[in-house]
């Protein structure tokens, strides 16, 4: 599913003393199969932008096309759109509400018009997909689960309706290393099956560099760069402007380069840096 954003602007509380321009003439296209990282400091407009993709914020200026559908139109079928574009918020465990995990995960599919049987089947699939034992957890209250399990159940609730686009707002915030790894693995799994297009907001440059094939850099509501992680992190001026720093692996590569050691890698993750170092030093 391709997403095309054309000249998108958004103003909070327009024509009041609290007026704030959140997005200012942003245009870019997300191709099917892309994993796009959206980065920028707090208040740069990342969340506002992402909430446009499934019309949680309606387009007020500019256009957005999801596939061929113009979602800026007032007549957009919101239910169909939200079924297609799934959205995972920060701390998704705070949205759990039903008395059993199975019912909670079925909430989305039922809202999106699947019948009970189909919804139950989708829920079972999703719960397995996030790595939980369906039979063990299905009748448990979501509030009895451990912190990590809660987050997984909540994610199951978002992916149960098999969205073809998934938008993640800081998916790993507050998680320990295992939790982080699990979520990023899950995103890779999803990309192999029904969810080909992924858009993620993150402050963690290591995650962006290792997982995204494209990055969109926002600054004060404007699109600053639409590029690849290789190019962004190879451009010190761009990194300085984003105020977000380098991924650790790129940082190490740059320190080595400053001492005259050239490496044949963009060093976007620890593994590729390690391989390059082995090639350079272990012969």
């Amino acid at each position: 599913m391709r997403i095309k954003v054309e000249d998108l602007s958004y103003v909070y509380s327009p024509k009041t003393p609290f007026e704030k321009v959140a997005l200012d003439g942003v245009s870019f296209t997300v191709k099917e199969g892309d994993t796009v990282g959206i980065i920028g400091s707090t208040g740069s407009g990342k969340s506002t932008l992402c909430q446009h993709f499934n019309a949680l914020i309606r387009v007020t200026h500019g256009k957005i096309y999801v596939g061929d559908v113009d979602i800026s139109s007032k007549k957009t079928d919101l239910t169909a759109l939200r079924k297609q574009v799934g959205m995972l918020f920060q701390f998704p465990e705070y949205q759990l509400f039903d008395d059993t995990v199975a019912k909670d995960v079925q909430f989305g599919p039922l809202n999106f018009g699947f019948d009970r049987e189909e919804a139950a089947r989708l829920a079972a699939e999703a719960i397995k997909m996030v790595g939980m034992d369906y039979d063990e957890v299905k009748d448990k209250s979501p509030f009895e689960l451990s912190g990590g399990e809660k987050r997984r159940a909540a994610i199951a609730g978002v992916i149960a309706s098999k969205p073809s686009v998934l938008v993640l707002d800081e998916p790993t915030a507050g998680l320990d290393p295992i939790g982080k790894r699990e979520i990023l693995e899950l995103v890779k799994e999803l990309k192999k099956s029904f969810c080909k297009t992924v858009i993620m907001i993150s402050h963690n440059m290591d995650e962006i560099a290792a997982n995204c094939n494209r990055v969109i850099v926002l600054h004060d509501g404007k699109l600053l760069y639409d590029t690849t992680p290789e190019e962004l992190f190879a451009d010190p001026e761009a990194v300085a402007r984003t105020d977000l720093g380098y991924p650790h692996s790129v940082h190490i590569k740059r320190l080595l380069e400053a001492k005259g050691v050239k490496l044949d890698t963009a060093a976007l993750d620890a593994d590729s840096l390690l391989e390059a170092l082995k090639r350079r030093y272990c012969v």
């Binding site: 320990d176 290393p177 650790h248 190490i252 620890a270 390690l274 170092l277 030093y281 272990c282």
Partner: peptide
């Protein structure tokens, strides 16, 4: 302990293991 070493530590440990 299911923790994750900082990138530099992880890489230096791997390189030492590789005989460096």
């Amino acid at each position: 302990a299911k923790l994750e070493l900082p990138v530099a530590s992880k890489i230096s440990a791997e390189l030492r293991r590789a005989g460096l």
